[in-house]
Design a protein around this nucleic acid. Sequence first.
RNA 1: GCCACAUUAGCUCAGUCGGUAGAGCAACGGUUUCGUAAACCGUAGGUCGGCAGUUCGAUUCUGCCAUGUGGCUCCA
Length: 638
Amino acid sequence: MVIVKLPDGSELKVNSPASPSDAAKEISMGLYNACIAAKVNGELVDLNRKFEKDFNLELLKENAPEAKDILLHSVAHIMAQAVKELFPETKITIGPAIEDGFYYDFDKEPAFAEADLEKIEKKMQEIIDEDLPFERKVWTREEAIEFFSKDGETYKVEIASDLDDTAVVTAYTQGSFTDLCRGPHLPSTGKVKAFKLLKTAGAYWRGDSSNKMLSRIYGTAFFSKKELNSYLHLLEEAKKRDHRKLGKQLDLFEINEKVGPGLVLWHPKGAELLNTIRTYWMDTHRAHGYKFVQTPHVGRANLWETSGHLSFYKDGMFDSMEVEGDQYYVKPMNCPFHVMIYNSQGRSYRELPIKYAELGTVYRYEMSGTLHGLMRVRGFTQDDAHIICTPEQLNEEVEKLIQFAFDFLKSFGFTDYEVYVSTRNEEKYVGEIDKWNQAENALKSALEHVGVPYQVDQGEATFYGPKIDMKIKDAIGRMWQCTTIQFDFNLSERFNMEYTDKDGLKKQPYMIHRAILGSLERFVGILIENTVGDFPLWLAPVQAMVIPVTDNHKEFAENFLNTLIKEGFRAEINLKSEPIGAKIRSAELDKIPTMFIIGDKEIESGSVSVRTRKDGNKGAVKIAEALNMMQEEIKNKG
RNA sequence: GCCACAUUAGCUCAGUCGGUAGAGCAACGGUUUCGUAAACCGUAGGUCGGCAGUUCGAUUCUGCCAUGUGGCUCCA
């Protein structure tokens, strides 16, 4: 007999050897059917694993936090089985559960195409319908190597060979298919109620681009059809927000192959949006003590040699051009120029902190496959600034900066964050350890002081200094990295930056690179996806559309338009020979936040009818009141 | 850069099992002058992404290239 102790303290006696499913059956068949795995003495195990000694048992149903991974991983095995049955020459590699799904990498020539997915899905459904049990095997390393060698599964042999030679190796078999796997798995394939294969992709063996390119299939699975459908629905929602689609629809920007990949042409409405952001950025930065600088798009090779870019970052830069016998490079960053401005004269501790800010457009050679709408481009505008300060000023400056970043992003409607501090990589860093420690502490204590929870990315700093990265959460829960605050021990050293301290000694200042929005292009992309193109009034490229009911109202409407423009609003007028229903529809499709409709009634009473995108028809108001309403909303960043 | 897939009018898309193409919207012209999400009639618009090859004939088949999309890698 084995005594099984349950979480509520009660005990069951079960014939030895006993499995979690034996115990579940003791309680009820309903419970047994609902279980998918178990925890024995805290360890995740299969339901049918046998135990001879007494144990503590926690049965896991579909709603357990661990259940999803077990399901996904089991479906990955089912997919691999289906693939092996359909395409026996395929070699299997690895297939983990990931967030929202799973994938499996196969070595197959030619690679899988989307068209294969349907066939594989059908086969998978057959395997599920057969309700094959997942059976666990325990092997030595040698047994595993022998098994997979026999099958010609060279990747599995490689994985097994890399294991410790004393390691206990487990493998799972369902039907004709056996895979090396730590487990646990579902008791049988029939437990899978809803799955879908989503896409194919290329992926390097072991994630290394010098290795062979494998063929990856992505899929997802759920315990119910309903969950699967709502997931697929969410994917559709994300598609509707796609900034590339909305950018075209709303005529904001284009990326034209005749111009070049990754290079953005901002159309008038997009440029208007950018300018609104720029103006706000300039105003707030001026108020926070930043000084604006402006620097060229190219610079001599010598400058980039001194900065270290040509040794550390050449692959990310466009090729040089020769001018009068000298090599010049298009700038991938603004920092060396800002350093030159700092170094243009002797600096006193009294001047510090100096904060140079620039919306500087930089160009980087990004690999063609990585380009993506506005999110990843080759020419973009950083909302860049460099803070140069004394060691004593460090903590306060970082703290101000964090607060500033939060406040600034809040104006755009972003209030949820994840914050990461990246610390020194032991293998790869420049500068003194003391400075690193001080800088890392400054970052952490500033976050703590402002009351921001953060995670530490150990060893993830750049070679030149530790950093804070902030991710903002959008309306459908996706995270986007924008803000970055990076220490730099490299440039101050290389360019011999100094200041004269109180004691008359020349000292090296601290330098911080920072961007709050990251890149304006990317940030606009995020804004579009977050708002679905429904920009708040203060940002909307066209804030108001004036709509005369008929040609008879044209003159009054044009006068009102001029008033709007004179008052600084971004307004347009629709003078087409269309019924107002059509004019309204067209303004709605353009997502214009406010419409002013003018007909006989309005002209008689000297008013305008207001229709907002948010609230629909709000009726007639006096002209002064209409202007006031708009001004208020804009002031509140609405 | 790598793997897979895609590219037809300004936009969204249909179509040709190889005989050089069509719709809706947009544009333009005319009619209409209308009260809160689509008035009516007409006109024009395409080297079917580019270059080769196969073929009597290629938008269609094949190859290469460009660009895009989904991933991989990269993102100091």
